[in-house]
Simulated scan of single mutants.
Amino acid sequence: MTSFLCEQIIDFEAAEAYEVNDIEGLIKQVKTYLAESEGKKVVVLLRNAHYLTTRAFAILYNYIQEPISTNVVFVLVSADKSKIFPPLLDFVQHD
Results as ranks from 00 to 15, higher is better:
Thr70Ala: 15
Ser82Cys: 15
Tyr18Asp: 09
Ile10Lys: 03
Lys31Gly: 04
Lys28Thr: 10
Ser37Leu: 08
Val73Tyr: 12
Ser78Trp: 02
Asn48Leu: 06
Val43Glu: 05
Tyr18Pro: 05
Leu46Ile: 01
Lys40Phe: 00
Ala35Val: 09
Ile64Gly: 05
Ser78Met: 09
Gln29Phe: 02
Ile9Asn: 00
Leu46Phe: 08
Glu38Gly: 09
Thr32Phe: 05
Asp95Asn: 15
Asp90His: 07
Lys28Ala: 14
Asn62Gln: 13
Asn48Ala: 13
Asp22Cys: 06
Glu13Thr: 15
Ala79Arg: 02
Ala14Ile: 06
Glu36Val: 04
Ser3Val: 11
Phe85Lys: 07
Lys40Trp: 04
Leu76Ser: 10
Asp90Tyr: 04
Gln29Asn: 10
Asn71Ala: 02
Leu46Val: 02
Ala15Ile: 14
Gln29Met: 12
Lys28Ile: 12
Leu34Ala: 00
Ala17Thr: 08
Ser3Met: 14
Gly25Ile: 09
Val72Gly: 07
Val92Gln: 03
Cys6Asp: 12
Gln93Glu: 13
Arg47Val: 15
Cys6Met: 11
Gly39Tyr: 07
Cys6Lys: 11
Lys31Met: 02
Thr2His: 11
Thr32Ile: 07
Leu76Val: 07
Arg47Leu: 15
Lys28Gln: 13
Ser78Gln: 02
Val43Ser: 05
Ile59Val: 14
His94Glu: 12
Val75Ser: 03
Arg47Gly: 12
Pro86Tyr: 09
Ser69Ile: 02
Ser78Arg: 08
Ala58Tyr: 04
Ser69Trp: 00
Lys41His: 15
Arg55Cys: 14
Gln93Thr: 15
Ser69Glu: 07
Thr53Met: 00
Leu89Val: 14
Asn71Arg: 00
Glu66Gln: 04
Ile64Leu: 04
Ala49Leu: 03
Lys81Ser: 11
Cys6Thr: 15
Gly25Lys: 13
His94Leu: 13
Ala15Gly: 15
Glu38His: 12
His94Phe: 04
Pro87Trp: 03
Ala15Asp: 13
Thr53Val: 11
Ser3Leu: 13
Ser69Thr: 02
Leu26Ser: 09
Lys81Val: 11
Val92Ser: 10
Cys6Phe: 13
Glu7His: 13
Leu5Trp: 12
Glu19Arg: 13
Leu52Val: 07
Asn71Tyr: 08
Phe12Asp: 04
His50Asn: 08
Ser82Tyr: 15
Asn48Val: 15
Lys40Ser: 01
Gly39Thr: 05
Leu34Gln: 04
